[in-house]
Design a protein around this nucleic acid. Structure first.
Length: 423
RNA sequence: GGAGACUUGUCCGAGUGGUUGAAGGAGCAAGCCUGGAAAGUUUGUAUACGCGCAAGUGUAUCGAGGGUUCGAAUCCCUCAGUCUCCGCCA
């Protein structure tokens, strides 16, 4: 959520920048400013009334104390009309604030200056590519066939238990999952991230805090009986840890990592995009989150991008890094890098990480602030990235590392898996 | 799940209807003191939204939301959480 004060003072440049994000409803900006002015006016009036009432109440108090009941009752009569009016104003104020809020939550974050122009994924800027793509012999299999061949991931069984998109990992498949999770968590710990294990069900307030609600309500599984949502990413619970918190500037940056299963309804996805591990309803992911001083957040974004790249290097997977164009970025992001690995049998780039700086967009909703010395608290910047999402990493490992003898496990994982080949 | 007790500022803790945004203490910050430090001492120490160039000032906030009242941290209702006892159970 953007700050109304900022919208008011920078209307023109805000509109320019929103256009870069391919946002159509730019009239919302001026609507927000107008609503905010209205809000101020109403609040002024209401404050005035309440102040009068408070004064009268105080006077009545002293009169009653000194036994002047009559005079007190006279003043009491005066408060009746005041009270009624202020009640009325209060409800118009509530309504106005709600309207304002409804407008604000529809306005996406502003793109950072480095964000390229563009509306579709084709216009994303490739900022790094790890070189020549691996070529597999013609008889190479896509990962879903490898899964069946070695009986390590069973999609059919998942359908029986739950439905499509909920695979069952078996034997070395299950162990590979566990190995990846441990590898990622250990690397994150080495890089200074504090591991947390959050709930994977969250309340609506947390959903609002990080922006999944009201925007993407239909993308989350909802547990109606208790009004909880299954998390689509660990970002939600982990970032919400800091909701309504004021952090000391010297404690920044805050670095957290978490492994969680993630749940996404993926309504509207279909066809070959959802084949095998490419797109699941439930998957495992290790997430990294940082809360940083506004002046350092872009430096931190680069650091996080490099960190994720390091993981991919260690796994010896071919990858490229994209700087997303304005139109392809998420609602809340100011700048995003996507990391894609090449899955050689499918001959496809698969997104395995998305590293974003949200600047103060989430922090404003979360009321996540920091304080420098005795200054007033200011909104912090939030960043997060996948490090990494497992299924597509697994897909790429299976496909790229297949040999006639079996699937070779990347060197760095062997100490976690306890085996070096799936055969 | 049943019964009871409780939920106050960074922390501890007072406060059962009338200058209480909130006593007192601790912590923290600044000044004094000291060769330096400790101790001592003085002052300051919430957040949000308005108005104001500023000093300042108005309003709201004592778990959350509603209600009673001229006036609520204090009374009533609902919800959430914590603790104790019972029940159940990984």
């Amino acid at each position: 959520m953007l700050l109304t004060g900022y919208l008011r003072d920078n209307q023109e440049s805000v509109i320019e920048r929103l256009k870069k994000k391919n946002f159509k409803q730019i009239e919302l900006v001026s609507q927000a400013v107008e609503k905010d002015n209205e809000r101020k006016k109403i609040q002024n009036q209401l404050d005035e009334l309440l102040a009068q009432n408070n004064k009268l109440a105080e006077q009545i108090g002293t009169l009653m104390k000194s036994g002047l009941k009559e005079e007190g009752n006279v003043l009491k009569a005066e408060t009746v009309a005041l009270k009624e009016k202020s009640k009325e104003l209060q409800s118009t104020l509530d309504e106005c604030e709600k309207d304002l809020h409804d407008i604000l939550v529809q306005i996406p974050n502003l793109p950072y200056e480095l964000v390229p122009h563009g509306t579709t994924a084709e216009e994303n800027e490739v900022v790094f590519s790890s070189g020549a793509l691996p070529e597999l012999p013609a008889e190479a299999l896509p990962h879903w066939e490898l899964c069946a061949k070695y009986d390590i991931i069973d999609f059919e069984l998942g359908v029986k238990l739950t439905g499509a998109g909920f695979p069952v990992y078996k034997g070395k498949g299950a162990k590979l999952q566990r190995a990846l999770i441990n590898f990622f968590l250990e690397k994150a710990a080495e890089a200074g991230y504090l591991e947390v294990q959050p709930p994977i069900l969250v309340n609506a307030q947390s959903g609002y805090g990080t922006g999944q609600l009201p925007d993407k309500e239909g993308q989350m599984y909802y547990v109606g009986m208790d009004e909880f949502y299954l998390i689509p990413t660990a970002e939600v619970p982990v970032t919400n840890i800091y909701r309504d918190v004021i952090i000391k500037a010297e404690d920044l940056p805050i670095k957290n990592t978490a492994y969680t299963p993630c749940f996404r309804r993926e309504a509207g996805s279909y066809g070959k995009d959802v084949r095998g591990l490419n797109r699941l309803h439930q998957f495992d992911k290790v997430e990294i989150v940082q809360i940083q001083h506004p002046e350092k957040s872009y430096q931190t974004l680069e650091e996080m991008r490099e960190y994720v790249a390091g993981l991919l290097n260690e796994l010896q997977l071919p990858y490229r890094t994209l700087r997303l164009c304005g139109g392809d970025m998420s609602f809340a992001s100011a700048m995003t890098y996507d990391m894609e690995v090449y899955s050689a049998a499918q001959k496809k780039w698969l997104e395995v990480s998305s590293v974003s700086n949200f600047e103060s967009f989430q922090a404003n909703r979360l009321k996540l602030r920091f304080r420098e010395g005795n200054n007033k608290p200011a909104l912090a910047h939030t960043l997060n990235g996948s490090a990494l999402a497992l299924p597509r990493i697994v897909a790429a490992i299976l496909e790229n590392n297949q040999t006639p003898q079996g699937i070779m496990i990347p060197e760095v994982l062997v100490k976690y898996t306890g085996f070096s080949i799936i055969n």
